[in-house]
């Protein structure tokens, strides 16, 4: 039995299109095709002009984030059979579209870079590893696994409204990753930097980020912990 899947895909090539349009296209699948990404590769074999990013195809590189039937996710981890047809694919919302499903992620990475995303410790490094207890290391679980796919930040209304001022869930999750690391000595500086009506406090716990994270991480919880630390520091 042949399996045919119907798609409605957002298309826009600035080189030739006056404006974006939705393309209706269907493809026949092989029985081994389970994931949306595999179906997209077949669409591309039919129409090689469809552009999207992809790499590891197992949910760890973060390349193929897109808006799938209205919800952000990774194409490589999304079951084709779980989706109502036609499958409507759009680029991640809130970021400028370069072409088809490819968005300009400059603003997203700018926010990530704004949180000084590296370990700060100005003490002279010891000859061996810096020690950290298993319990201290445990604090990093659920935060260091972020793959920077941008599913969360581009599903966040606060990020849509203030992408230049609000760090967004991905950036804040990563900020907490360094705050929570006992080897990092810049906690105060990091909290000062985030203590701002926009950078941190635009988070209104809408929790779209938690809903869409393909790695099952919880940025809202990390943001809450940052806020708690600010309060306890002030007392």
């Amino acid at each position: 039995m042949t399996r045919v899947v119907q798609f409605r895909i957002y298309r826009y090539d600035p080189d030739k299109d006056q404006k974006p349009y939705m393309q209706d296209i269907s493809v026949e699948l092989e029985p081994t095709d389970k994931k949306l990404l595999q179906a997209l590769v077949r669409v591309k074999a039919k129409d090689d002009s469809l552009s999207f990013r992809r790499s590891c195809r197992e949910g760890v590189c973060g390349s193929d984030a897109m808006n799938i039937n209205g919800k952000n996710g990774l194409a490589c981890l999304t079951d084709i059979d779980s989706l109502a047809q036609p499958i409507v694919l759009r680029p991640l919302p809130g970021l400028p579209v370069i072409r088809d499903l490819i968005v300009d992620m400059t603003q997203f990475f700018k926010q990530y870079h704004s949180i000084t995303p590296y370990l700060i410790n100005d003490d002279p490094p010891p000859e061996r590893e810096r020690l950290q207890t298993p319990e201290e290391r445990e604090e990093l679980n659920g935060v260091y696994e972020c793959i920077l796919c941008a599913c969360c930040s581009t599903s966040c209304p606060s990020f849509w409204w203030n992408p230049d001022k609000f760090v967004g869930p991905a950036g804040l999750l990563n900020a907490y990753r360094f705050i929570a690391d006992t080897r990092d000595t810049a906690t105060n500086q990091r909290l000062d930097d985030l203590n701002d009506p926009y950078r941190l406090f635009r988070c209104h716990t809408i929790m779209n980020c938690v809903d869409v994270c393909p790695k099952h991480l919880n940025p809202t919880k990390a943001i809450g912990k940052i806020k708690e630390l600010m309060v306890s520091r002030a007392v």
């Binding site: 590296y118 410790n121 590893e129 020690l131 207890t133 298993p134």
Partner: peptide, 19 residues
Amino acid sequence: VIELEHFGMPFDRTDEGKI
């Protein structure tokens, strides 16, 4: 590997706190 730890790599830890 020690350099990498100093760069911030989140290695798992032994009970003594080593890599």
